[in-house]
């Protein structure tokens, strides 16, 4: 299997606050990779570096062998092939849900209005929101906003799907449904998926591989499948993360 994204020697953070130091990992074609760790360990920061929202202090982020920060075209090319769903959905409040999904189509394709609407509806259908197409994003629930965000992220059939905290703010059932949706997209379209989360249930449900970050080391402290990390790790921080949560779950 090939690496779609390679992160090499990444150092970064906010303004003058260092968060990550020496982060190296690969994202393989077609896998679901989960970036996990305790609150404040830098998961969202890492994702923002990868998405090109904040510039890394050092190191490279390679998408299919090309450093996305090397020039604006590389970044634009990567972004056209990536889909991103933000924690809040981040739908534009002045557009309807349908128009939100049409946004990338409008920007990047020469489809006619009718064709764009058709594509947008089929994406909304995938996430089960076709009947809410004309609603304003603010009029639907948080879970629906996330699904609409997912539909928008999928509008151009991305090669890589990024997802920040899919389960945050959702009840366990809705969250599990969203997980299944992500999994089925991954399996049927072969989309590579990168998810930031600290929800153990979804880690065990759908991840192929997990990397765990830690605030103190400012880097990766463990890599492997969810089961390997839970049962095989001797690192007390990894054990605490996986055991404590598991313990709470069985309570």
């Amino acid at each position: 299997m090939d690496a779609v994204i390679k992160v090499e020697g990444l150092r970064g953070g906010w303004d003058r606050l260092p968060v990550l130091d020496g982060v190296d990992f690969r994202v393989m074609e077609g896998e679901i990779l989960m970036i996990v760790g305790r609150s404040g360990c830098g998961k969202s920061t890492l994702m923002r570096h990868m998405l090109g929202l904040i510039k890394p202090w050092a190191g490279r982020i390679l998408f299919r062998g090309i450093d996305v920060w090397s020039n604006p075209d590389a970044m634009l090319n990567a972004r056209r092939r990536w889909g991103v769903t933000f924690q809040s959905g981040a739908l534009l409040g002045n557009l309807s849900i349908l128009e939100n999904v049409m946004l990338p189509l409008r920007e990047y394709t020469d489809l006619t209005e009718r064709e764009m609407i058709t594509v947008a509806f089929s994406k909304l259908e995938t996430v089960g929101l076709a009947e809410f197409a004309t609603a304003n994003p603010m009029e639907v629930s948080g879970g629906m906003q996330k699904r609409a965000g997912l539909a928008r992220a999928m509008a151009l059939d991305p090669e890589v799907l990024f997802f920040d905290e899919p389960s945050a703010g959702l009840d366990p059932v809705t969250s599990a449904k969203l997980d299944n949706l992500i999994k089925s997209i991954n399996r049927s379209l072969g989309t590579t998926v990168i998810i930031v989360t600290h929800e153990l249930a979804s880690i065990f449900a759908i991840s192929d591989r997990v990397i765990m970050l830690d605030a103190e080391t400012r880097g990766i402290i463990a890599t492997g499948t969810a089961r390997e990390l839970r049962d095989g790790s001797t690192d007390p921080r990894v054990r605490a993360f996986f055991r404590r949560n598991v313990g709470e779950e069985s309570d």
């Binding site: 998405l51 929202l53 634009l76 972004r79 990536w82 534009l92």
Partner: peptide, 17 residues
């Protein structure tokens, strides 16, 4: 400002706008 707070600006940027 509101779009910034609601991550809408980030969303636009990662869509390549």
């Amino acid at each position: 400002g509101t779009m910034k707070v609601r991550e809408e600006v980030d969303a636009l940027r990662v869509m390549g706008f």
